[in-house]
Amino acid sequence: MLARLSRWFDRRGWADILIGAPYLWLLIFFLLPFLIVAAMSLGTKTPTAPPISFGGEYPLLNWDSYARVLGDGLYLRAFLTSLANAGLAMVLCLLIGYPMALGLCRVSNGWRNILLMLVILPFWTSFLLRVYAWMGLMGRNSWFNRLLTDSWNLLVPVDWAVKSVPMMNTNFAVVLVMVYTYLPFMILPLYASLERLDPTLDEAAMDLGSRPFQVFRDVTLPQSVPGIVAGGMLVFIPAAGELVIPTLVGDASSPMIGRLISDEFSAARNWPMASAVAVVLLLIMVVPTMIYSHYQAKAEGSK
């Protein structure tokens, strides 16, 4: 027995352990908690500690939370706000990030390192600090807001004049800060996929009569789809569940879904409700991802 174990170690033991460890990690710290959350979503809220019960005088499986998620306008609106804000942030990140990623591929090596550094640099300061900085900028009395206000008042008729530009506590602020925060997550996968492309293909297309824009449309863009999808998911998924940004700069009257989950868990102590919302959010995220990877695998399989 011991001899067999030692033989396994000699041959492929370390490889198995190295490959297995992250899966074990995910199993314990992601799949298991998720199953617990899924189970909790079917429990009943009780004035006990913990505030949740299954069976006994309560139903074993209580679907009421799901009924509320799907039936109560509050939740539907929150889902729509989240998806709209995250979708908008994703599209804006793509529009801003794509030219930046393309630029990274086209500059000299020295410049590339500097520019890549600039893309990653914001990660070195605290995320919260950066959000607070934006709050300072957008606030009613900031120099930035006053500058915008003055410019606006100068350019439009007197009737349209404003005291300040309403930026804080709006969806605009949420999207703006999310775009700012998540932009590197779009640029880096896009850069990775664009950087792999063979520049001779551009020359070949040009040689066959395509102008630079047509070359981009016919050759560069279609080949960068995997990068666009990867970057899109890296922005959209965390943005849709974002809690901190909408709490700090968002409009409290139209909460995003992360805010609802947090409120249900802590303030309302309604664990089943919070869990049900979390499960639905996960399904909304996972299903399109799975459909995409299915087609991706099919495309790969034909290779």
């Binding site: 063979d198 001779t200 070949a204 297309a205 040009m206 009569g209 016919d218 050759v219």
Partner: peptide, 20 residues
């Protein structure tokens, strides 16, 4: 005259076929 306006076509060493 830019490449796209020349009546000249090239067969690249790597062939440069569009993979997609």
């Amino acid at each position: 005259v830019p490449p796209w306006n020349r009546p000249v076509h090239m067969m690249f060493q790597s062939y440069a076929l569009f993979p997609h």
